[in-house]
Amino acid sequence: MLRVENLWVEVAGKQVLKGVNLDIAPGETHILFGKNGSGKTTLLMTIMGFSSYHITEGRIFFKGEDITHLPPYERAKRGIGLSFQRPPTIRGIKTRDIINICGRGRISADDLAERFQFQDFLDRDINLGFSGGELKKSELLQLIAQDPELTLLDEPESGVDLENLQVIGEAIRNLLQKHIRRKRAKSGLIISHQGFILNYLEADKGALMWNGRVHCRGNARELFKHIQEKGYEECAECIAEFMK
């Protein structure tokens, strides 16, 4: 589904990604842990194709096609969707408008909002004055309308209270077809600082982002447990040892 080859990315003149390799098969969900500033968001923004993320080396393939230089909307059309950690407010554009843009007429914004108790937000300016949980809900509703094959989730649990975590976990499971065991086609890449999202859904593989590179690939839950117990500092020492 997604293959990232030796990706080097510069943001505002600073080298953030330093040779990232990643391979996500159809139906797989990967989770990438890492401290703030390790390059996780940069990776997602680069996969989506945003202009301030400059690829200095490497390539990105989606379903076998080289998309390294495609603009974001071409990537969206091909089936990549992103849930932003901090989406911008756009005055005058209603949540309903943007859900309709995402759904391209295939889905009713009212029905969708009703399913997630989000009706009161449909006619509000997108993201204006939304709480942390409301922002995430709004992002996920847009993605459900968009129905991407590859879902990129940037810190889906940050700023969400316990009550809403359940709803958000359910929405993500839905997006990633977690209810289908065989012939699951949807893939996901989740980045998370704290990893609590794993309490609400399974990931097939886990890895650690450290200083612009991906390390410690393996079982997601084991890695999460390890990070919870030992903290990122021990990861740093381990990686330093490994890099010697």
Binding site: Y73, A76, P87, I90, R91, G92, I93, D97, I101, R104
Partner: peptide
Amino acid sequence: AQEEVEYLMARGLSEEEATSTIVRGFLDV
């Protein structure tokens, strides 16, 4: 803001469509 344009581009609108959607919203008082 480029950030707003690209947000809409990530939802499938071309740069031109995203810009005109933002302008329409801006004027829709």
